[in-house]
Design a protein around this nucleic acid. Sequence first.
DNA 1: AACACCGTTGTGCAT
DNA 2: GATGCACAACGGTGT
Length: 647
Amino acid sequence: MAPRVIYWFRTDLRLHDSPALNAALDLKPEVLYPIWCWDSHYVYRARVGVNRWQFLLDCQQDVSKSISKLNKKSKLFVLREPAVTLLPKLFKAWNISHLVFEKDTDAYARERDAQVMELARKAGVEVIVKAGRTLWDSDELVKANDGKPTMSMSQVQKAAEKLGEPDKPVDTPKTLPDPGDMKLDFDQTQPKSAPDINEKHRDEKEGTYSAGIAGPNGDFSVPTLEELGMKPATTQHRGGESIALKMLDDIIANEEYTGTFEKPKTSPAAFEPQATCLTSPYLHFGALSVRYFYHKVQDVVEKRRRAKKAVSEVPVSLKGQLLFRDMYFGAQAKLGWSFGQTYNNSHCRFIPWHLPSKVDVNKKLITGEYEVDDEEKDIWFQRWAHGKTGFPWIDAIMRQLRQEGWIHHLARHSVACFLTRGGCYISWERGAEVFEELLIDHEAACNIGNWQWLSCTAFFSQFYRCYSPVAFGKKWDDNGDFIRKFVPELKDMPKKYIYEPHKAPIADQKKAGVLIKGDGEETERDGVAVYPKPMFDFNTQREICMQGMKSAYAVGFYGNSKAVMDGTWKKAFDDSGEGPTSGEQGGPAGLDSFEDADGTEELITSPPTAKRAGRNEGSTGSPKSTRGHKREHSQSTLEGSFKKKAR
DNA sequence: AACACCGTTGTGCAT
DNA sequence: GATGCACAACGGTGT
């Protein structure tokens, strides 16, 4: 019998350089079904804001069109049911012989795919999996690194040396087989919708499952944001393989840019156009092949080398950027779920951050909620997340993130340092969650890795190198054009005060049409714009954080240290120091025994779920002020702690 | 074993 | 404006 193949698209929404798709075609199938299984984890459990949804739908639409160009009977058939329940029914209904997909090493995807592979085995369906999401198969990279997670660039380079150059791109298919008939002689299994972590993004009820497996028109079309019950996207960035390939052509055509790219020399304040090439969201959804990108870049670099022209080198070069991506994938591939949290993470330093994750000690996983050890810190967190800290550079970045879904890498550094070790002393896990929700290029491995990097809990440790929310921005954008764009209430503030508007005399404030007062709740008074005062004195907080980091490093716990695992870590920290260091409950080893509210099991076991303990659920609302707060679980004040430490 | 050197992307001041 | 240094000092790697 000629093979009857399901090609399962996931984060590989492209036709070019797809080893997995080509492997499916190499089977010379009688029929090939290009399908997408509508995943409830992505709809309800992962943090996905409107902008990344839009980007995904763009990518799906585009690849569907490209498939139809090769065979007008075919397209991307979107089936509205999760893979684990749907695929076994399809195997039968469509008389499938082979299932083919691209390898995914994300912790969640590994569990899902293991279940799918077991179900395929039981159904007598052969499974073919090909790596194509990274330069090297992440498991092979780990193996070449003595079986250890790749935690530094030098380790990646050494391991890569053993593996040789990444595979050359494979050809784009010129034809595609017909799909078979789309018989659905079975019922849809509707996934559990609660808890719905993305509820705050919805105007209407989520409705992608309610119209049945084939959707409202019965044609397996790509869903819309309206069907998801979501407001329109606010980003101008659009997804799809077609755009990605054109972008890459433009990058490569500029040989000097490609050959001499140095990341630290690109400006985080540049917009329209931004200073870096913005290929990351396309890499995330697989609309752009990373290996194709790599070899295109290397061709240019080699050509320039032969011509004795200047070229940049790893790690600052474009190749270096792609190597970092593989590094984070390698770390995640080895560490699994624990990579995404402090608790039980063998390679993440333990710091007694504020707003630590709650932990289910039985599953050894964070629950998705966090402990509010100090009400003031939760307010700081909300103000940070909504761009109302009173530090214009930080607020401009956070507003660009919320509006456009993409910010420059150094901008990410600046706000991440500010939230964690260089300002608020709040857990990197809180920041990672906000980025997960808002970034169109959110890649779990890279996001988690970079948050650990910036918080000096893994990959990087020089915590005394601290970004200033004033000086760092000024270095790139003395006039504050970036602030004027994204914090428009400050657009007429004199250059002298644009990074520190609270220092502007009232007369200058009035002239600029903005009053600097309050805590971010008030945005206007008597027709005049209001911008908040800084939520703390930066130099004071910086010093508190430095001392906190120094003592936490001296204690030397990691996420899997016994004292962290059993909650006794508090004994090792001074109650007068920074962070939640007293009380019986709370903290990353808060020993929160977590159970599903209704006691039912998820289809996929134990992804960190969607509940959150924070007071401010709204993504667009303004943070609420709580005056006269008190520290709930700690006995000392910030000021007291600072004074004591400073002696 | 002890030590030097390096690490994608700090700040603030002096020269 | 460019460059160099102190700041106070991290872990990994290599000699």
